[in-house]
Amino acid sequence: MVLNWKWGGLLLGLVFFIAVLLVKPIGVSTQFVILDGIGWDIQSPDVVTQTEDGYTSTNAYLAKSDGKYAASVANPLNYSFVFVGAMMLGAGLSSVLRGGVPKGEYMVPALWRANFGGNVLKRWIAAFVGGFIVLYGARLAGGCTSGHMMSGMMQTSVSGYIFALGAFMAAFPAAIYLFNREA
């Protein structure tokens, strides 16, 4: 059902390499900010504004680095934002071709069910809270599992090692504590 780690690792490594070879290292978590910015800018159009030599924002985070994020919010048809859309397309197609997520799994995953039962609301709250912490942390760190851990460590960037150390130092004990029963 899942690819053998030798094939899987080789293919995943090739994708990360080809991304740097042809364009730039892969990263994902910034696009959560860009999507937020797009929504915010629709609500109140003066959040992101055009200047003489680019874009800026009333929000200090979107305005940082000469309005790099503000520019992406103003022009969503850019490499990194389209990339994440294409990731979803690829994962969706792959899922359809392998028969999709089994019934009884797409609401509450088996490992969660074995430890916390089949209550859907409980799982959704945990996923929501987890998502909040993950993206807050990723933005504070300036990258996520893709940008820091994979792209970072493959480039021998010190920030990648620091990030991986923090992430696994927290994730191993947390998962051992949470998921004592196996499934």
Binding site: A126, A127, V129, A141
Partner: peptide
């Protein structure tokens, strides 16, 4: 980077997803 990494690690374990 380190503080954010710890936060991501906790949420990653809880939800089973990263971004």
């Amino acid at each position: 980077v380190f503080i954010g990494g710890i936060m991501l690690g906790l949420g990653w374990a809880l939800a089973g997803y990263c971004p």
